[in-house]
Nucleic acid binder design. Structure first.
Length: 678
DNA sequence: CACGCTTATATTTTT
DNA sequence: TATAAGCGTG
C-alpha cells in the first residue's frame, strides 16, 4: 500500500490517533492519500462501519471508497459511512432523530422548496402587496441560509451582504419565525436543518454520548469549503474520553464556496481549535506539467492572502499554456472546437478534455457550435433539471403521498387544474386541514381528500376526480414501486402539462427520465431523499448508461470541476466581468474568491491548458442593432502573469470599420434599377 | 376568482 | 432571458 506514496503522504496515511490536518495543494494526490488512510485504518483493525468519511459530493465519496476498497485485503471498505454532510445528517437523523422530536419519515426540502414555503408565508403575512418592495422568495431563502450556516446575527448578514434589505429586517424576522415553525409542524427539514439537527444531536446532553461513540475515526475532505456550522458538528462529534481522531484535508488556495457561508477560518484555525494537531503539507504536484504549474502559481501568488505553499512538479514538458484573445464569442467557440479536435487527432480522447467556465450559461454559445459540428458533450453544473416546473409538479404528487402535510406540494398540485387558482386551492387546503398540527387521532389530509366530498369550483371537478383516482392508485407503495407510481401519475399529468407550459415534448422526455431515475430507488421516500440530496448534476446522469461507451467532451462549471482533472483543459470567458463575475466584485473577499476560482480551473490541467477570452460581447439578441460592448482580459491575468503563457490572437481590439454608406446605397439603387429595366 | 396579457426586474457558483 | 407582479376581462 505504501509503495506509491511519498514520505509526506505516507505520514498522513500512517498517522495514528489525534487530530490531523493535511494541507494538500492542487494535484498532490489528496484523494489517493485519503483513500489509503481509510484502507490503512481498516487494515490496522478499525471496523469500517466505525469510520465516517465526509466528502463534498456523493461522487467524491464513491470514488474514494472504491479506491480504498481496492487497497484493503478484506475489501469491506463499502461499509464505511461515506457521503456529504447533508446526506450523512439525513441518515443519522432518520436513525436517532426521535430524541429531538423528529419522525423518521420527514421529507427534505431543497433550496427552491424552501423558497416556495417562504413565498407562501410572504403572501399570508401580507408582505407581497405593499407599497414598498419586499425581498423576493429566493432572496429570503438565501438570507436565511446564510444566516444559519454562518451562525451570524441576521442584522450582520443583512448589513454585510444584503444592505438593500435592511429596511425590511422586521418583516424578514417575521417570515423566518413562521418559516421555522411551519417546517417543524409539517415534518419537513431543509438543507440547513439537516446540519442544525445533527449539531443538536452531537451536542445535546441526551444524545451526544451516543453519537460520539458511533465512530472511531472521522475524515473530512475539502475542509476549506466547510462552514461554521459544519465545524461545530465536527467538534461536537468528539468522544468524551479518548483521542480526537479527526482528519481534515484541504487547501486554502482552493476555497470557492464563500457564497455558501464556507469559511477558510475553519482550516486556518484548525490547529488552535483542536490542540495537539499534527500538520502535514503535501506540496508535490503529480498532475500538471511545470509550465502549467508555473502559470497557476503566478496567478495565486498575486493574492494578498497568504497561501503558505509552493507546489512543485517533476514532470517533464516545456509546452507553455496558451492564452488566446478572440475577437468575439463566435471566434472563441470556433477556437475551442478546433483545439479540441486538434488534441483528439493527437490521440487525446474527448473524455480526457474539459471546457471550464464560471457560470452555467457561459457555455451556451459553445454548446450550439459543438452540436453543429457533431462533437458530443456532457455538461456538469447548473441545476436545470430539478428546476423545471413540470418536474416539480410530478414530484409534488409523490411528496403528498409521502407526507400529506406538505403544504407547498398541495398548493402546487391543486393549481395544476383548470379553474383552480391560489384562492380556491387555499380554501380546499383549509377544508382538508393540511396545516393542522398532526395528531394521530384525526384522518390525514390525504385520506380526507380521497374519501370525503369536497367543495371545488365546477370547472375543476373532473380534474379533482382524476387526481383522486391517480393518488389512490399510488397509495399502496408495496404494490407499486416509485417508478410505477410516476408512470401512473404521468398518464394524467401529461395533458395538464401540455396545457400549462410550452415545449411539451421535451418536458415529457424529462418525466420519462425521472421515471428512469426512480427505478433505481427502493422506496418512494428513498427516491425523494436521494433526489434532493444528490440531484442529477449533469445531462449525462440523466442520459443513462448507453452514453458511457461513447467518447464525449466534458463541459463544466469551475465549481463542479473541483477535485477533478483532465489531460487537456480549456478555460473560456477569462474576461473581466466573467472571472471575476460582475456579481461578485463587491468586496475584497469576494474578488479573492474569484481569483481562487481561476486558480482551481487552471490547476485541473495535466498536459495542456488553453485559456481564451472574447474581446467583444454582443448584447442579448433582443434588438436588431449590432450593439456590443468591449471587454478586458481578466484582472487576474495581468502582464506579469502573461510571461507564463504563449499569447496568441489580437491584443488590440480593431476599431470597427465605419461602412461606406454611399457604395451600399449605390448597389441597392443599381439592383432596383436592374429590376425595372426592360 | 381565474386567466391571459403587459410590464418591470434581477441576472453566479450548489448541498 | 425568465420570472413575478399588475391589470383588465369574463
Amino acid at each position: 500500500m505504501f509503495d506509491e506514496l511519498n514520505p509526506e503522504q505516507e505520514a498522513a496515511v500512517r498517522h495514528g490517533d489525534g487530530p490531523l490536518l493535511v494541507v494538500a495543494g492542487a494535484g498532490s494526490g489528496k484523494t489517493m492519500t485519503l483513500a489509503a488512510r481509510v484502507a490503512s485504518l481498516i487494515e490496522r483493525g478499525t471496523r469500517p462501519e466505525r469510520i465516517l468519511l465526509l466528502t463534498f459530493s456523493r461522487r467524491g465519496a464513491r470514488e474514494m471508497l472504491s479506491r480504498a476498497e481496492r487497497l484493503t485485503e478484506k475489501g469491506d471498505a463499502g461499509r464505511v459511512w461515506g457521503g456529504t454532510f447533508h446526506a450523512v445528517g439525513n441518515r443519522l437523523l432518520r436513525l436517532h432523530g426521535r430524541v429531538l422530536g423528529l419522525t423518521p419519515d420527514f421529507t427534505v426540502l431543497d433550496q427552491a422548496d424552501g423558497a416556495d414555503v417562504m413565498n407562501l408565508l410572504r403572501d399570508e403575512l401580507g408582505y407581497s402587496s405593499r407599497e414598498r418592495r419586499f425581498p423576493r422568495k429566493d432572496t429570503l431563502a438565501a438570507i436565511y441560509s446564510r444566516t444559519v450556516n454562518a451562525g451570524e446575527r441576521l442584522v450582520d448578514v443583512l448589513k454585510g451582504h444584503y444592505p438593500w434589505c435592511l429596511d425590511e429586517a422586521e418583516g424578514i424576522v417575521d417570515i423566518f419565525r413562521a418559516y421555522t415553525e411551519r417546517k417543524r409542524r409539517q415534518h419537513v427539514l431543509d438543507y440547513d436543518d439537516l446540519l442544525l439537527f445533527w449539531k443538536a444531536l452531537a451536542t445535546s446532553p441526551a444524545t451526544r454520548a451516543q453519537l460520539a461513540t458511533m465512530f472511531d475515526h472521522v475524515l473530512v475532505d475539502e475542509y476549506q469549503d466547510t462552514n461554521a456550522l459544519q465545524a461545530d458538528i465536527l467538534e461536537g462529534m468528539r468522544p468524551s474520553d479518548g483521542p480526537r481522531n479527526l482528519t481534515v484535508v484541504g487547501d486554502d488556495a482552493q476555497a470557492i464556496y464563500g457564497f455558501r457561508a464556507a469559511t477558510v477560518k475553519n482550516i486556518l484555525e484548525f490547529p488552535e481549535r483542536f490542540p495537539g494537531t499534527t500538520v502535514i503539507k503535501l506540496e508535490r504536484n503529480y498532475r500538471s506539467t511545470p509550465p502549467i504549474l508555473a502559470a497557476s502559481n503566478a496567478v495565486i501568488a498575486l493574492s494578498p492572502q497568504r497561501h503558505e505553499k509552493t507546489l512543485w512538479s517533476s514532470r517533464e514538458s516545456e509546452l507553455l499554456p496558451v492564452l488566446r484573445a478572440c475577437l468575439d464569442e463566435a471566434e472563441q467557440s470556433d477556437a475551442v472546437c478546433r483545439t479540441v479536435l486538434g488534441h483528439r487527432e493527437e490521440g487525446v480522447p474527448l473524455k480526457a478534455q474539459a471546457v471550464l467556465f464560471r457560470a452555467a450559461h457561459h457555455s451556451d454559445h459553445l454548446e450550439v457550435e459543438l452540436a453543429r459540428r457533431n462533437i458530443p458533450f456532457v455538461k456538469y453544473g447548473g441545476l436545470k433539471f430539478m428546476e423545471g416546473a413540470h418536474v416539480k409538479d410530478a414530484l409534488a404528487f409523490l411528496r403528498i403521498l409521502e407526507n400529506p402535510f406538505d403544504e407547498v406540494s398541495w398548493f402546487r398540485v391543486l393549481q395544476l387544474l383548470e379553474g383552480m387558482g391560489p384562492a380556491s386551492a387555499r380554501r380546499l387546503m383549509d377544508d382538508l386541514e393540511v396545516r393542522r398540527i398532526d395528531d394521530a387521532e384525526a384522518a390525514s389530509p390525504l385520506a380526507r381528500f380521497l374519501e370525503e366530498p369536497l367543495a371545488v369550483p365546477k370547472a375543476a371537478a373532473q380534474g379533482i376526480r382524476d387526481i383522486r383516482t391517480a393518488l389512490g392508485d399510488c397509495l399502496d407503495a408495496d404494490a407499486l414501486p416509485p417508478a410505477g407510481q410516476l408512470a401512473r401519475l404521468r398518464t394524467f399529468l401529461e395533458p395538464l402539462i401540455a396545457r400549462k407550459y410550452d415545449a411539451a415534448a421535451s418536458r415529457t422526455r424529462d418525466l420519462e427520465q425521472l421515471e428512469l431515475l426512480a427505478s433505481e430507488s427502493a422506496s418512494r421516500g428513498q427516491f425523494l431523499a436521494d433526489l434532493t440530496l444528490d440531484p442529477p448534476s449533469s445531462t449525462g446522469d440523466l442520459a443513462g448508461p448507453p452514453h458511457l461507451d461513447e467518447d464525449y467532451l466534458i463541459l463544466s462549471t469551475i465549481h463542479s470541476a473541483k477535485g477533478l482533472e483532465w489531460d487537456v483543459v480549456h478555460v473560456i470567458h477569462a474576461a473581466d466581468g466573467m472571472i471575476p463575475s460582475d456579481m461578485s466584485t463587491g468586496d475584497d473577499d469576494e474578488i479573492e474568491e474569484e481569483r481562487r476560482l481561476l486558480y482551481v480551473a487552471l490547476t485541473r490541467a495535466r498536459d495542456a491548458l488553453h485559456v481564451t477570452y472574447p474581446q467583444r460581447y454582443y448584447r442579448r439578441p433582443r434588438g436588431l442593432e449590432d450593439s456590443h460592448s468591449y471587454s478586458q482580459r481578466s484582472r487576474f491575468l495581468p502582464d506579469e502573469v502573461l510571461l507564463h503563457f504563449e499569447v496568441v490572437g489580437p491584443q488590440v481590439v480593431p476599431v470597427p470599420d465605419v461602412p461606406e454608406p454611399v457604395t451600399a446605397a449605390a448597389d441597392v439603387d443599381a439592383f432596383l434599377a436592374g429590376l425595372w429595366a426592360d
